[in-house]
Nucleic acid binder design. Structure first.
Length: 533
DNA sequence: AACTAGTAAC
């Protein structure tokens, strides 16, 4: 083949590069090219550019190899620069430390230094990397460059900038400013702004835009459903799902992203009937039931109490990743099946699968709820030593919870003292709960007072202290705390509530009653049941 | 060769 002459030779090599399946094949071609004397100069450039595209953009490519190929190009043009900048924006490799600054920016500076001006495609790539890294300082600098080079009216670039500002929760207002000043807004502009509000927790602002927009697409629906499901308003997420199916004559059909989000909403509601309906809908829809959806199904069935069905789906999965394992382990942990959680973890280890920080949250909380202190200590150690996972503040909270429940207050306090980070309210709250459980008023009083100082408007800590005093018969202190609560107007504002699904409708109720559940009737039934027990 | 959307825990 190397005997072939231009142009068929070059065309054949280009076809070979396009047909590459992996980096090994590509490297072989690259090696042959380097040795070949038959390539005219202007062909060499197009060949090396194609090589670069493969390494930089193909899923089986390699960013480090792309960087070295780029280094071989003598006078890279705008197209070549854009390829590598694009690769940095979306590809993540071993050298891509999440905390590092944008690598594409260095390339951009070099390009401008070479006297090459960016075009309208350069900026979306640059901004995407800033968004991914939540590096809004660099993003702002690039915003300046956009204006300087006269691209302030490009809709793609403006949309990219909205997403970039939206990546940082505190900058939703910067995104909104751009959004308001944009002339030709399209559906992506609206979606990006809505996502900015959803990320920053301002669900009502997102809802306002959603209601006002003229055309919605699948991304709009999926974003608003996901945002509400994750933002603690899963009931509304379900409503959006129904709205989606009745809107626009069913032009926009749910896809697998919709299904994954809606299952997560069902999971947090404990809405088993809804979840089952979605499962049936999924089977009939022809939507591919991929690993993500199966994991969401495991979570949904597990959180709705159908552990057997969750396990069945897990066992029938054609392939499982560490997320699927973690979801199943979490289901076991939630229901107090510590043994099952542990043996699934062992299965995971045998397969050489890497558990992550979430896996250990599940394992540690399973140990805490089962009172398996020895095992919990062991997992905490394995996490650090074997898997090099730095314990986060919520791992410490699990450990303190476990030790507190076991009454091991000295060890719990020692652990808190030696934490590498500042203990948060969950850590102290776990210790307080342990004190309350064991009637350790001396320590509990100290912790509760500290927590009240830290978060003086949170009623939970006052109530704990009050109940501890009451139980210990410390009437004088009880009086003091009660008057303190009265003086500060501390009340249990939102009573603890539960939810129940009846005939596919999710009802919320609490001891104080409910707007939806007829309490007299409920009490009557309960009284009757009580007689039978 | 461009911009927006999914699963596990807290």
């Amino acid at each position: 083949m190397l005997e072939l002459r231009w142009p068929s030779f070059t065309a054949a090599i280009l076809r070979l590069i396009d047909g590459c399946k992996n980096m090994r094949e590509l490297k072989q071609i690259h090696a042959q090219l380097t040795k070949s004397p038959y390539i005219p100069n202007h062909d060499a450039h197009s060949l090396i550019t194609r090589l670069l595209s493969f390494c930089a953009l193909s899923p089986s490519g390699s960013l480090s190899y792309a960087t070295s190929v780029f280094g071989c190009i003598k006078n890279p043009n705008l197209y070549v620069y854009n390829i590598l900048i694009r690769a940095y924006s979306s590809k993540i490799d071993a050298h891509d430390s999440e905390k590092g600054s944008c690598r594409s920016l260095g390339l951009y500076k070099r390009m401008v230094g070479d006297g090459i001006s960016p075009d309208c495609l350069t900026f979306p790539f640059l901004l995407k990397e800033c968004a991914r890294r939540v590096d809004t300082d660099t993003g702002r600098a690039i915003h300046g460059q956009v204006v300087k080079f006269g691209f302030g009216c490009d809709i793609y670039i403006n949309n990219s900038m909205i997403s970039m500002y939206s990546a940082r929760c505190s900058l939703a207002h910067s995104a909104r400013k751009l959004f308001d000043e944009m002339l030709g807004k399209d559906v992506v502009s609206w979606n990006s702004m809505i996502m900015g509000y959803l990320r920053s927790g301002n669900l009502d602002a997102a809802l306002d835009l959603y209601r006002r927009m003229e055309q919605r697409n699948i991304v709009t629906w999926n974003s608003i459903i996901t945002g509400f499901a994750q933002g603690g308003r899963p009931k509304e997420a379900l409503q959006f799902f129904h709205e989606m199916q009745s809107a626009g004559g069913g032009i926009v059909r749910p896809d697998k992203i919709t299904i994954a989000s809606i299952l997560s909403a069902c999971a947090s509601l404990g809405a088993l009937d809804h979840g089952k309906w979605v499962h049936t809908f999924l089977s009939r829809s022809g939507i591919e039931c991929d690993m993500v959806i199966r994991t969401a199904l495991i979570d949904m069935y597990g959180k709705c109490g159908a552990v057997d069905r969750a396990l069945e789906i897990f066992r029938k999965m054609p392939n499982r990743d560490n997320l699927a394992f973690t979801a199943m382990i979490s289901v076991f942990a939630l229901h107090g099946f510590c043994e099952e959680a542990s043996s699934l973890f062992e299965e995971m280890e045998k397969l050489g699968m890497k558990p992550n920080h979430v896996t250990f949250v599940a394992l540690l909380s399973a140990c805490a709820h089962s009172g398996l202190v020895q095992k919990g200590r062991w997992y905490f150690d394995v996490m650090k030593r074997v898997y090099s996972i730095e314990p986060q503040v919520y791992h410490y909270a699990c450990m303190v919870d476990m030790l507190g429940r076991a009454g091991l207050f000295e060890e719990a306090e020692r652990l808190i003292k030696n934490m590498p980070m500042e203990p948060d309210v969950f850590v102290w709250g776990a210790l307080l709960a342990g004190c309350q459980m064991h009637g350790n008023v001396e320590l509990g009083e100290r912790v509760a007072k500290y927590l009240i100082d830290l978060d003086p408007l949170n009623h939970v800590f006052y109530v704990s202290l009050r109940d501890m005093y009451a139980k210990a018969g410390r009437l004088k202190d009880l009086k003091v705390i009660k008057s303190l609560m009265k003086g500060r107007q501390i009340r249990k504002e939102v009573p603890g509530h539960s939810m129940i699904e009846i005939d596919g409708i999710v009802h919320e109720f609490s001891v104080r009653g409910s707007s939806e559940v007829r309490m007299e009737e409920l009490l009557f039934v309960l009284t009757c049941l009580g007689g039978q027990c």
